[in-house]
Simulated scan of single mutants.
Amino acid sequence: MTEKLLRPMRTRRWPERWLIRLLGAALAAAAYLLFMPWDLRNRPATPTTTQETTPVTGIGVLLLALVLLLLAAYFGHWDDLGWPLLLVAAPPAALMHISFRTHPEPDLPGLWPLAWGFFTLLIAAGVLVAAGVARAFRGEWAKEDDLTLMNPL
Rank of each mutant, 00 (worst) to 15 (best):
N151L: 07
A134T: 09
L149R: 15
W18L: 07
M1N: 06
V129G: 01
G82D: 10
R101Y: 05
D145C: 02
W112L: 00
W116S: 01
W116G: 01
R12K: 14
A89L: 04
P55Y: 10
L6A: 05
G58S: 07
L121I: 00
Y74T: 06
A142L: 09
R138V: 04
A142F: 14
A28T: 13
A93R: 02
E3P: 05
M150A: 15
M9D: 13
H97Y: 14
G82T: 08
A115V: 01
A25V: 11
R7S: 05
L69P: 04
L63S: 08
G24I: 12
R135D: 09
L149W: 15
I20S: 02
H103T: 03
G58W: 14
R138S: 03
Q51V: 09
L122G: 01
L62F: 12
Y32F: 13
P55R: 08
R135W: 11
P37S: 05
P47W: 11
R21G: 09
L19D: 06
M1L: 09
R41V: 08
G76P: 05
E52W: 15
T120Q: 00
G76H: 08
P84C: 04
G132T: 13
Q51L: 04
R7N: 04
M36F: 14
L149Q: 15
P152S: 14
W18F: 09
M36Y: 12
G82W: 14
L86W: 13
E3Y: 12
K143W: 12
P55H: 10
R13K: 10
R138Q: 09
A134C: 03
R17K: 11
L111E: 03
L40G: 14
V133G: 03
L71S: 08
W116K: 00
L85G: 13
T102G: 00
F35R: 04
L34C: 04
L27I: 09
P104K: 03
L23A: 13
L64K: 03
M1E: 09
I20A: 03
A26S: 08
W112H: 01
P84K: 08
A124N: 04
T48E: 09
L95N: 02
